[in-house]
């Protein structure tokens, strides 16, 4: 009975750790689950073996399985199953090693200055020059965002997708997946100057701290003009309904 309780308690905590992955799509990393579970199992074992009665209750079923003459059949089945299970798990672990672990930052810190288009941009305090029109001339602003959309669909949508969800035609050929712009945890967290840097300099411009540099994003400074870049940034925010972070907050 206590053995079942022991397993149930551990299963409960395992389910708790698995829940974010299954329900919210944000899995707890397997490396963390392994460590957590190791110590959870240890703690539950300790708590359940404080008294002698507790310890005996926990281990009695195992002892009887190994020693009780009346359970010889169950014992034989177990002794066949154990090596099979061990073999299967070894095979499982050795056939699919998967790609190696990596330590990579998705939004690495930007540099202080960016040199492009023959100019030097200090990213600190850099604003989108077209953003002011949003209040001054909403009609012209809409037109600029629409033009930004044209730039987007001529250049970006192949990877970042028609719905700006990062799932374009080529998206699944890449690892990491292209960044989605929808949702509240990508561009909504960033300033426009950050996007400017990422578009203009692309994957090659990522700093070393970004870990293994495997972003496939091209550096667009040779393909797009400065104005086109600012316009496409307008489009990204306008279309997804996100607001860029400003330098004030």
């Amino acid at each position: 009975m206590r053995l079942i309780k022991f397993l149930a308690v551990n299963l409960f905590f395992y389910a708790l750790l698995k829940a974010p992955g299954l329900l919210a799509g944000k899995p707890v990393p397997s490396s963390v689950i392994t460590m957590y579970m190791f110590f959870i199992v240890m703690t539950v074992l300790l708590v359940m073996t404080i008294t002698d009665e507790g310890a005996n209750g926990l281990f009695a079923p195992i002892r009887s399985l190994l020693e009780d003459p009346s359970r010889a059949l169950a014992r034989k089945v177990l002794f066949v199953l154990l090596p099979v299970a061990a073999a299967l798990s070894v095979q499982y672990l050795s056939t699919d090693p998967g790609p190696p672990f990596e330590l990579r930052s998705a939004h690495p810190a930007p540099p202080g200055v960016v040199r492009a288009y023959g100019k030097v941009y200090e990213l600190d305090g850099l604003e989108n020059p077209l953003r002011a029109l949003e209040k001054e001339n909403p009609a012209a602003f809409k037109e600029l965002a629409r033009e930004g959309g044209e730039v987007y669909f001529r250049n970006c949508f192949f990877c970042h997708g028609a719905r700006l969800d990062g799932r374009g035609h080529y998206a699944y050929a890449m690892d990491p997946l292209p960044m989605p712009f929808t949702g509240s945890d990508t561009i909504a967290q960033l300033k426009e100057s950050y996007l400017f840097w990422r578009i203009v300099k692309g994957g090659p411009g990522l700093p070393r701290e970004g870990g293994p540099n495997i972003s496939s994003m091209p550096a667009w400074e040779n393909e797009l003009t400065e104005e086109e870049v600012w316009k496409v940034i307008l489009f990204l925010y306008d279309y997804t309904g996100n607001r860029p972070r400003s330098w004030k907050d």
Partner: peptide, 12 residues
């Protein structure tokens, strides 16, 4: 420490 598939799901 993340496997690439986990990094994908978390997005970073």
């Amino acid at each position: 420490i993340l496997t690439p598939s986990e990094a994908r799901a978390i997005g970073g």
